[in-house]
C-alpha cells in the first residue's frame, strides 16, 4: 500500500515538474489559438509548420550561432584553464598553491548581482562591451571546473608524472597525452555544466551588449517576448529554439549531470 502510494506520488511530482515544459510543446505545436482555448488544450498535436514559420521570419540562426559560438568557445577555454589550474593545484608545489585554491573557491562566494556595476566599468575600459570576447572571457575560468580537475588529478598515481619527468616529457605534453585523457569524466562534467550555464546566459549579454548582431538566443528571445506579447504560439515556438538543445543534451546525459551537480557543488566538509 505504502509502496504503491509512494510510486504514485513520485509520478505526480515528476509530472507536475515537467508539465510546464510539456505545455511548451502543447502550445507551440497545437492548432492556432490553442493557447486561448477554455478549458486548456491538454495534448500536443506536433504541427511543426508554425515553428518553422517562426524560425524563418526572424534571424534565429544568427542568434543560435551566436550562442553556439559563445558556448563552445567558453567550453574550450574553461576546460583548458581548469585543467591547467587543477593540475597545478593537485600536482605542483609552489608558494601560494593553497592560497590560490581558496581564492578560486572564493570567487563562488562573490555576489554576482552586486558586481555588475563595477564589472561593467571594467568591461568598458577594456573595450569589451559589445564584443564576443566580452561574452566569453569573463566565463573562461570556472571554480567548479578547477575543483573537479584538481580532484581527478590528485587520484592519478604520482609515478605517472614521474615517469614523464624522467623521460623528458614536457608538462603540456603530459597534460595533453596523459593527464587530461585520463580525466575524461572531469572533462565531460565540465563541458556539460559549462554548456548549460553558457547556453542559458541572459543577464550578462543583456547588460554588456546592445548590438543585435551579438545577441545570444536567450537575449533574442527576451526581445522577441517584448515584441510578441501574448502571441503564445509564436512565443512558445521561439522558446523551443532555446529549449530544444538543452532538452536533447539533458536527455542523453541526465545521469551524468545530476551526479555532477550532486558531487560537484556539495561543499567539502573536511
Amino acid at each position: 500500500m505504502v509502496k504503491v502510494s509512494k510510486y504514485l506520488l513520485r509520478a505526480v511530482a515528476a509530472a507536475l515538474m515537467a508539465s510546464p515544459i510539456y505545455w511548451v510543446f502543447v502550445i507551440a505545436t497545437g492548432y492556432h489559438g490553442a493557447a486561448y482555448a477554455l478549458p486548456p488544450v491538454m495534448r500536443p498535436l506536433f504541427h511543426w509548420h508554425p515553428f518553422l514559420y517562426v524560425w524563418t521570419h526572424t534571424h534565429w540562426e544568427r542568434y543560435v550561432l551566436n550562442s553556439v559560438f559563445i558556448s563552445s568557445s567558453t567550453i574550450i577555454l574553461v576546460v583548458v584553464t581548469s585543467a591547467f589550474a587543477g593540475y597545478a593545484l593537485a600536482e605542483l608545489k609552489f608558494p601560494g598553491n593553497s592560497a590560490y585554491f581558496y581564492a578560486s573557491l572564493g570567487v563562488m562566494m562573490l555576489p554576482q548581482q552586486a558586481l555588475l556595476v563595477p564589472q561593467y566599468v571594467v568591461m568598458f575600459h577594456l573595450h569589451l562591451l559589445n564584443t564576443y570576447a566580452g561574452l566569453i572571457l569573463p566565463f573562461a575560468a570556472s571554480t567548479s571546473g578547477i575543483f573537479l580537475f584538481r580532484q581527478f588529478f590528485m587520484k592519478l598515481p604520482a609515478s605517472y608524472r614521474e615517469i614523464a619527468r624522467l623521460e623528458g616529457v614536457s608538462t603540456l605534453t603530459y597534460l595533453r597525452r596523459v593527464a587530461v585523457p585520463l580525466a575524461r569524466p572531469a572533462v565531460a562534467t565540465t563541458v556539460l555544466l559549462t554548456f548549460i550555464s553558457s547556453w542559458n546566459q541572459f543577464q550578462w549579454p543583456l547588460i554588456m551588449t546592445n548590438s543585435l548582431r551579438l545577441q545570444p538566443i536567450e537575449l533574442a528571445l527576451s526581445h522577441y517576448m517584448q515584441t510578441y506579447q501574448s502571441n503564445w504560439r509564436e512565443l512558445t515556438s521561439a522558446a523551443l529554439i532555446a529549449l530544444l538543445p538543452i532538452l536533447v543534451v539533458f536527455a542523453f546525459t541526465q545521469r551524468h549531470i545530476v551526479r555532477a551537480v550532486a558531487g560537484g557543488e556539495t561543499p567539502q566538509k573536511e
Binding site: 513520485r10 509520478a11 511530482a13 515528476a14 509530472a15 515538474m17 515537467a18 510546464p20 515544459i21 505545455w23 511548451v24 502550445i27 493557447a35 548549460i196 547556453w199 542559458n200 541572459f202 538566443i217 536567450e218 537575449l219 528571445l221 527576451s222 517576448m225 501574448s230 503564445w232 512565443l235 512558445t236 521561439a238 522558446a239 523551443l240 532555446a242 529549449l243 538543452i246 532538452l247 539533458f250 541526465q254 545521469r255 549531470i257 545530476v258 551537480v261
Partner: peptide
C-alpha cells in the same frame, strides 16, 4: 531514474524560454 531526472530538469532550462510558458500559465 526518470522521475528524478524530471524533477531536476527545470533547473537546467533557460530562464527566458521557460518564463514564456509560465507567462502563459499565469495569463
Amino acid at each position: 531514474g526518470l522521475s528524478q531526472a524530471l524533477v531536476f530538469l527545470p533547473h537546467v532550462t533557460p530562464v527566458v524560454a521557460t518564463s514564456i510558458i509560465w507567462a502563459w500559465i499565469f495569463d
